[in-house]
Simulated scan of single mutants.
Amino acid sequence: MEKIIEAYGEVDGKRVDLITLKNAQGMTLRVTNYGCIVTSLEVPDREGNLADVVLGYESLERYLAGHPFFGAVAGRFANRIKDGRFAIGSHRYQLETNEAPTGQHLHGGARGFDKYVWGYDIEESKGAILVHFHRVSPDGESGYPGTMQVTHTIGLSEANTLCYDFTATSDLPTIVNLVNHSYYNLAGHDSGSVADHELTLFSDFYTPVSETMIPTGEILSVAGTGLDFRSPTVIGDNMKAIDGGGIDNNFILNGKQKDGDYKLAADLYDPKSGRYMKVLTTQPAIQFYNAFKLSNREWYGRNGCKYEAFGGLCLETQGFPDAPNRPHFPSAVLNPGEVYHHRTIHRFGTR
């Protein structure tokens, strides 16, 4: 394993670094301590040729100018909270409603965890390098209660495995749902639509949403819908069954296939390159978003590539959206003395 640390810029008077990790197979991960953003991930195909399989930018300045969460951490609460309102016991809280089209609270607010410089430490072993990002989110930050100590670990192993671990504690009852928001295209970030990728989601049920993207509270079967990915399915085939082809849904993991403490969540495969990515997690659900909204604005990524609708996809392991307002969903409350700890791994290979 190799590591390189380079100066990447400065935000709020704090140094921002770009950390490069590389294993013996040539797989290369680049991540910055600004927003814990995965800026680049080079993965070999079945012929051994490398391609960058995540959407992103070359420079910090581009990220500072705004982006749709390319590769970033989302929190304190990823996904949406209805009207930005929730209660813990008798205490009621109002967060900003920063998603203009829907009027909901999204991904922690206008300045969520993705817009801070994190401290970090690096742990090295023979088989892996882990970057432990950490920060303190003060009581009241973005309207959330409690001072939260957060550690987000991102690492690369010699076995072509990428890990995303999250740990958090709070001195007051609060809510938390932390995810990585990378957009993947296993054919290469500049290769166009992912509609020809094959996807398996280990989920029998999903949580439908209203027009404003908030869960209705129902839990419905994926059977007979364009959201049925229980067996390997060409994404574009299912998109034909959905008006406009857009997918942005929370899928409940069935836990039928396990690897130790991890549930198998997703298996993504690109037939052209032979690359696959298996997602395993301790989380209860996964958000599959096929980036149908990318064309709402112009986004130009590395090497001037224009990222358009369906040019990548997100597989975000998570708690349920709007869980603080749905008692029958898994709880998102973190109390003093408790530890929020969730782990996700992405295994890359070819077939």
Rank of each mutant, 00 (worst) to 15 (best):
F251W: 11
K272G: 09
V222F: 06
S295T: 12
P284K: 07
I252C: 13
D267E: 08
Q257E: 15
K256E: 15
T200F: 11
R275K: 07
M213P: 01
Q287R: 07
I242D: 08
A241H: 08
Y262E: 06
R302H: 11
A285S: 15
I235H: 00
I242T: 01
A266W: 10
K263W: 09
L280Y: 11
Q283C: 05
K278N: 03
F292V: 04
T212P: 01
K278Y: 00
E211C: 08
M213L: 15
M239T: 01
A195M: 13
G192I: 02
K278L: 01
D196F: 02
V209F: 03
G301E: 13
D190L: 06
M239Q: 15
D196K: 10
L201N: 03
Y300G: 00
N185S: 07
P208Q: 05
N250G: 05
S295R: 00
P232D: 08
A291L: 05
A291W: 02
L227M: 07
D259F: 03
D261H: 04
T207A: 13
Q283F: 08
G246Y: 02
D237R: 05
L227F: 15
I214P: 07
L220G: 04
P232H: 09
D243C: 11
N249Y: 09
R302I: 10
D267K: 10
D204W: 02
L253V: 03
A285Y: 01
F292T: 05
V194E: 00
Q287E: 14
K278V: 08
L280V: 00
S193A: 15
G188V: 07
L201E: 03
P215G: 01
G260M: 08
S193Y: 06
G274M: 14
M239A: 04
N249R: 01
F229I: 02
T281K: 04
G246W: 02
D196C: 06
T216P: 11
A195Q: 11
Y269F: 15
D228H: 00
Y276H: 11
D259V: 11
K240Y: 04
M239N: 09
T216D: 06
A223N: 01
P215M: 02
R297F: 06
G244L: 06
L268D: 04
I235G: 02
K256M: 11
D261E: 10
S273G: 11
K293F: 09
G244A: 12
N254D: 15
I286W: 03
I242S: 08
M213E: 13
E298V: 15
F292A: 12
A223V: 06
Y276M: 00
R275I: 10
K278W: 00
H197W: 04
L220P: 02
F251N: 03
E218K: 14
G246K: 10
L268N: 02
K293N: 06
Y300T: 14
T281P: 05
P208V: 06
Q287M: 13
A187P: 03
V209M: 12
L264W: 09
G224Y: 00
M277Y: 03
Y289E: 03
G274D: 14
L268Y: 06
D204L: 08
